[in-house]
Amino acid sequence: MLRTTPLLMVLILALITGCASTSHEPPAPGLAITPAADDTLYRALGQREGIQSLIRSFLYVIADDPRIVDQFAEAPIDRLEEKLNEMVCVIAGGPCHYSGDSMRRVHRGKHISNADFNALVEDLIKAMDREGIPFTVQNTLLARLAVFHGDIVHR
């Protein structure tokens, strides 16, 4: 049994990393992500109004977060709010079009650390809690946003 164990481990690891990398999507212009296959998440978030309310809460939470609020000091808040609405709508499968720059471009030269990114995610969770968004819906949205991590951090 012991002899077969390393092989088993390698297989498990290969399976995990293999499965993880097969879902890699070809980058689309703009958001660099393929829109969702269906609108389940969009409806679960309360469609356009629900997403608008969420993004507004999110911006209020960020404004109260001394860890990262300074990162947004120069940001045009109205444009940011509009693009965030479009972005969440698109990745949730809603009938929207994302007109902003790619995540990689937006964050280039900003030197966002993992600590900044984690703080932002924590703020989003706080906003989703405030909006009464169910845990399972929160997780699904976070999973779709998680793919941007590499485009945002250390750029």
């Binding site: 164990t5 481990m9 498990i12």
Partner: peptide, 16 residues
């Protein structure tokens, strides 16, 4: 694994 189990999170860990 965010939302992997009907929206709930799963954690897996393997070590050699």
């Amino acid at each position: 694994w965010l939302g992997a189990a009907a929206g709930y999170n799963l954690l897996s860990s393997v070590s050699l």
